[in-house]
Design a protein around this nucleic acid. Structure first.
Lengths: 156, 156
DNA sequence: TGACACATAGTGTTATAACACTTAATTTAC
DNA sequence: GTAAATTAAGTGTTATAACACTATGTGTCA
């Protein structure tokens, strides 16, 4: 019933270890989840990375965050946050201002337009999460989350 | 003891649903696993995507695969397999030959050099998987794999 | 058998990611 | 108080990803 990964990617030989199978399963699942999420966002003109930035900045309101703080909070590694923010600034989704106390820092805040976009997306995002996970029980979801937390425990 | 995702990405508010928390956990974990894997591969001059291609082609030996078949078997979406293979051909890791029966097809095979590279990498890859997952029990790994299979069941 | 639909690989082009390097402000140590 | 180290943001450049489009070979069907 549930097609396993081996079938999915048409692999002929069995996985060499459970550890390998676990890694491939995590990566494959994330890829499909992200692709689906990107497709949902596309008509709205932003990427999953940009969406992630907007969510972080909305959570930080009413203050902004500097570039490195933002980078450290992102879900996926992003080595060029400066130009990511350039593009988002061009789209008027965020605004930057140099910090007056420590002039090395540039604080970025979400704009009203960015907030409006997140608001428009809220329903679709919730639907997306539900669509992908509603067939698991709450207990299964908790177990999945716990196991992934445990994986990351030795990872970062 | 195990830091949960909220702490990790310094999120102040709780997740809005278990479904959302599950999605973010999957994506975050995959990102860290992939980054770590990429770092391990870097000294050998290939990316995780290229490694994936080599593994698929080694599994297909002694025959090659056409571009679309390869694309469909990849772990993550890759819209430009042609030029990915161009680069790998330049590096002499794969070789291409037009199919004589159906001249639309171009079959790609792994070269001896590609096989040698995989062989060199085998230990490091196994170590990498172990390092990331050895602190979970076999039962936990099986549960994790089952749950991820279940997630993907409604996804593709 | 000839026109048309379809499947396959590849190309042109733009956008984004990645990485090493630079510049500027602040902190630290003497 | 000044030089050196540190921390921050940004820049130059190359590599890769993404997407729409083209060219060519194969199958289909009137």
């Amino acid at each position: 019933m549930t097609p396993d990964l081996r079938e999915d990617i048409r692999q002929r030989k069995p996985f060499t270890s459970l550890e390998q199978e676990a890694q491939l399963n995590v990566v494959r699942t994330a890829s499909l989840l992200t692709d689906s999420f990107e497709q949902m966002l596309k008509p709205h003109g932003i990427t999953a990375t940009q969406y992630n930035v907007l969510r972080i900045l909305r959570g930080a309101e009413p203050v902004g965050l500097c570039r490195n703080e933002l980078r450290d909070r992102m879900l996926t590694r992003m080595p060029d946050v400066t130009r990511l923010l350039d593009r988002m600034e061009d789209a008027k989704l965020v605004a930057r201002a140099r910090d007056s106390e420590d002039r090395r820092l540039v604080s970025t805040r979400i704009t009203p337009r960015g907030l409006r976009l997140l608001d428009e997306l809220d329903d679709a995002v919730t639907q997306e999460h539900m669509r992908r996970f509603h067939h698991l029980t709450k207990a299964q979801l908790k177990t999945l989350i716990d196991l992934l937390n445990a994986v990351r425990d030795r990872l970062e």
